[in-house]
Design a binder for these strands. Structure first.
Length: 248
DNA sequence: AAGAAGACCAACCGCACTGAA
DNA sequence: CTTCAGTGCGGTTGGTCTTCT
């Protein structure tokens, strides 16, 4: 397999210092985002390009929105996850100012637990057979309070190892979307979007994400028709799916 | 007050994809 | 057509903070 790009000896690793951040910001401000490989050298950073890119995209970019996720953002993530699975960059693309890493972390640390508490399997967004018994004072679904479940280990335990069979479409196989069988995804997403209750009005067409210039592999695949699966049936009425609780 | 357990999140790692040579 | 460098993405890790006992 490929050699990692970050095997260069002498590179810093771990947390970024304020000085390093500033160097990166200054460099990108003057030269723009370009060849990530050349950025560390140009900026005088002892980091690999990959690390610089990550730091910039996830933390230093000026349009990053930091802080708690709003209620509608949460709602949107859940809905998008139901549609798209673990395609975090796509999901993040619909949330202005949010990064894929942030969305992913929020999902793993908050939303999974929330869904579990609501009796919904976060992997496929289906209603679980056995609902967790709500506490008397919390008859309605509520935000996950501090529970003993859902620790890092528990979360990890729910995640099967990545299946690497060379078929990139299977990269989301561990968290199948409830609409996984769709091959007319954009159509379905539109339908789902219209069936969302909602104060949230979004365009769920699979198109260029909110952040300009960012083109995902997923979208490339879309364009190249590599989604490939043609055998599955198209569910034209999402309301017929018993699983899409959140779209009612 | 102190240690343990849990929660959160920044960063790293490995793999897949693309495009140029 | 093949190879390889560059890049992006998703999964995972590990450090730090917070809460619990």
């Amino acid at each position: 397999m490929r050699k990692p790009c970050c095997d260069k000896q002498g590179n810093n690793r771990g947390a970024w210092s304020a000085q390093e951040d500033q160097k990166l910001i200054d460099y990108i401000k003057t030269h723009g985002e370009g060849c990530w490989r050349s950025i560390p050298e140009g900026a005088g950073l002892h980091r690999c390009g990959k690390s610089c890119r990550l730091r910039w995209i996830n933390y230093l970019r000026p349009d990053i929105k930091r802080g708690n996720f709003g209620h509608d953002e949460e709602d949107l993530i859940i809905k998008l996850h139901a549609l798209l699975g673990n395609r975090w960059s796509l999901i993040a693309g619909r949330l202005p100012g949010r990064t894929d890493n942030e969305v992913k972390n929020y999902w793993n640390s908050h939303l999974q637990k929330k869904l579990i508490n609501m009796g919904i399997d976060p992997n496929n967004h289906r209603l679980n057979q056995i609902l967790p018994r709500p506490r008397a004072e919390h008859a309605a679904p509520v935000m996950a309070t501090s529970t003993t479940t859902g620790s890092k280990n528990n979360v990890a335990a729910t995640k099967p190892k990545k299946i690497s069979n060379g078929d990139s479409t299977d990269r989301v196989s561990d968290t199948e979307t409830c609409l996984e069988d769709e091959n007319e995804e954009s159509m379905v997403t539109q339908q789902a979007a219209t069936s969302c209750s909602s104060s949230i009005h979004i365009d769920l067409n699979i198109a260029a994400p909110a952040s300009p210039g960012q083109r995902t592999t997923f979208e490339n695949k879309q364009e190249n028709c590599k989604w490939g699966k043609t055998s599955s049936t198209v569910v034209t009425d999402p309301s017929s799916l018993p699983t899409l609780l959140l779209f009612r």
